[in-house]
Nucleic acid binder design. Structure first.
Length: 612
RNA sequence: GGGGUCGUAGUUCAGUUGGUUAGAACGCCGCCCUGUCACGGCGGAGGCCGCGAGUUCGAGUCUCGUCGACCCCGCCA
């Protein structure tokens, strides 16, 4: 027997033909001498009719068939009569009258049925029996979407002159950044490879190697704690090209995203808007703004100095208003619950006022101005966020550059906390404003990221991106100045901006890239800036610093999270829904039961002893 | 590393103030049924209440520990 059609393909026009289907028993309805079996494969479902009168010999065998058995059925396609048609099924106008049945395989009773309309099963069970879970139409749809998106990206990038090039999975450990997954070397006792956190250095070397345009659907590995949108191994659409400007790279990314979203049935608007990091912080309090809801508004000007004093607001720091649309009237209880939106730590930095009716009694003009500035409409919730006035006198404003930067850091804290509050309110009232429903895809480029960030624990400045990111040329002076104050949180390093850009979709960071440093002196200076002396540079990146000296072309690139893109397109709540064999939040595989201990013999061969 | 939610039949859940034999639905098994498509009818089986201590005359229920799943913070250049 040879399969002639898939189970979702047959239509009224096929009536009369004799066909063969192969697939799983989705459901069986046994009426005694008449048995219906819905046969399922990845394309859909077809009803097969077994009639004892027409084929008595076969009927005894059909009676023993159960859900998830694998069958081959040859039969005649017949149109269904008016009263037996099923408009809910794609194949509901026809049915197949079985003539021949072959039982290809039986099935144990599964812990859940892939054919159930809404599988309401614990995710633990789904992951343990992932191969059954994958039979569900929803999973098929997600995996098919992933395939189509990947294919569209490949085709687009190939059309733009990119070569798809593989880079090593076993590579060298780089202690910066995320923790590495390590692979012990048998040949070199005590030495380890690392799995790549990204193919960063390889793709830069490919540019030095004159490959001109590279891409890879690249698996990356990071040994960090997980979230719904983070897996220990994940896939990036990674690319790099020579002689770029930011515009070149943005154009390529918008091009393949357009292709990918088209493949998933959506059109997106291009070009994407752009916003410098500093504006993103000021307007959204976050470096990945969700543009589906309004920005925050600076309303300090609406209030007199006296009013701010009375409200116990620090007038030297930002005063912003968060507008959440269409929230409507709030009960006393709902308003009280707003207090829980700030944790203790946040409450030290910001306070908020959400009762504008009360504010209006004392300062009607100011409130009118706030409504105007924020574009508030009837029913919108306004919440004003500001820094509480400190009781003790704060440090004297000495008016120098360091004092100015300290103030900027304080302002950042206000914006950032207000931004978190904005998202918390948006989540809380999502059912009312409905901005998160439907298929609104709001892309954004966030540009000019800080090159360095302050590490509170180590009390020093570190790379915000990776150390191969170019600075804006006119910030090189700040670098020389800032290096002198490496352990000062108000160092000039904080003012340096990078030629780095993130692509953001609906508040999710899809990808991150930059124009790279292609001059060895500058690269060395950056390493030096963060306290890496020449010996250490040579040890860790010697080969790379040397490569940079052999005619390295200007180059740049970006990497986008494929899993996240597909997750958003599928409307899925976690990456696990778009990865066929995902890991749990504790980085285990419940189906394979990995990781596992290994034998002493294996460890011995690798010269590894395990502390118990 | 920290916080939260959860863990009872194959599955999803209920389980009173600590008190008799731990229930329901779906699924499963048997019998019946020729137009169902979440088929239907009758009957039946199925439990280490995650695991381990403790409190108690008595623990699914209370306490402590532990394991596992999920979410969040830290972390993720």
């Amino acid at each position: 027997m040879k399969r002639t059609h898939r189970c979702g393909e047959l239509r009224a026009s096929d009536a009369g033909s004799t066909i063969t289907l192969m697939g799983w028993v989705n459901r069986r309805r046994d009426h005694g001498n008449l048995i219906f079996i819905d046969l399922r494969d990845r394309s859909g479902i077809t009803q097969i009719v077994f009639d004892a009168e027409r084929n008595p010999a076969m009927h005894a065998r059909v009676e023993s068939v159960r859900n998830e058995y694998v069958l081959a059925v040859t039969g005649k396609v017949e149109p269904r009569s008016e009263n037996t048609r099923n408009p809910k099924m794609d194949t509901g106008d026809i049915e197949v009258i079985a003539g021949e049945l072959k039982l290809l395989n039986e099935s144990k009773v599964p812990p859940f049925f892939p054919g159930d309309a809404n599988v309401n099963v614990n995710e633990e069970v789904r992951l343990k029996y992932r191969y059954l879970d994958l039979r569900r139409p929803e999973m098929h749809a997600n995996i098919e979407m992933r395939h189509r998106v990947t294919l569209a990206v490949r085709n687009y990038l190939a059309s733009q002159g990119f070569y798809e090039i593989e880079t090593p999975i076993m590579t060298r450990s780089t202690p910066e950044g995320a923790r590495d997954y390590l692979v012990p070397s048998r040949v070199h006792p005590g030495e380890f490879y690392a799995l790549p956190q990204s193919p960063q250095i390889f793709k830069q070397l490919l540019m030095i190697g004159g490959m001109d345009r590279y891409f890879q659907i690249a698996r990356c590995f990071r040994d960090e704690d997980l979230r719904a949108d983070r897996q220990p191994e994940f896939t990036q659409i990674d690319l790099e090209l020579t002689f770029p400007t930011e515009e070149t790279i943005h154009g390529v990314v918008e091009g393949f995203l357009d292709a990918a979203f088209s493949a998933a049935g959506h059109t997106i608007e291009r070009p994407f808007p752009q916003m410098p990091y500093d504006d993103a912080i000021r307007l959204y309090g976050i470096d990945k703004p969700d543009l589906r809801l309004p920005a925050m508004t600076d309303v300090k000007g609406a209030f007199s100095a006296d009013a701010l004093e009375t409200l116990a607001i620090d007038a030297s720091l930002p005063v912003v208003v968060i507008r959440t649309p269409k929230v409507g009237e709030l009960s006393r209880k709902e308003r009280d619950e707003h207090k829980t939106l700030l944790n203790e730590k946040q409450a030290k930095v910001v306070k908020f006022l959400d009762d504008f009716k009360r504010l209006e009694k004392s300062w009607p003009e100011a409130v009118a101005k706030v409504r105007e500035l924020s574009g508030a409409e009837e029913g919108d919730l306004l919440v004003m966020v500001a820094a509480p006035k400190k009781s003790e006198a704060s440090a004297e404003d000495t008016g120098d550059a360091a004092a100015e930067r300290r103030k900027q850091r304080d302002a950042f804290a206000v914006y950032s906390n207000a931004g978190q509050l904005r998202l918390a309110l948006a989540q809380r009232y999502a059912a009312r404003h409905k901005a998160f429903e439907g298929k609104a895809y709001k892309f954004l480029w966030v540009t000019d990221f800080p090159s360095f960030e302050w590490d509170e624990q180590k009390e020093t400045w570190t790379f915000a991106h990776h150390p191969f990111t170019s600075l804006h040329e006119d910030h090189m002076e700040l670098l020389s100045e800032g290096v002198k104050a490496l352990h000062d949180p108000n160092s000039a390093l904080g003012a340096i901006r990078a030629r780095a850009y993130d692509v953001v979709l609906n508040g999710t960071e899809l990808g991150s890239g930059s124009i790279r440093i292609h001059q060895q002196e500058i690269q060395a200076k950056i390493f030096e800036a963060l306290g890496m002396d020449e010996a250490e540079q040579k040890l860790r990146f010697g080969f790379f610093l040397e490569a940079l000296q052999y005619g390295t072309p200007p180059h740049g690139g970006i990497a986008l999270g494929l899993d996240r893109i597909v997750m958003i397109l599928a409307g899925a709540p976690s990456l696990r829904e778009v990865i066929p064999f995902p890991k749990t939040a504790a980085a285990t595989d419940l189906m394979m039961d990995a990781p596992t201990p290994v034998t002493d013999a294996q460890l011995k061969e690798l010269s590894i002893g395990v502390k118990k």
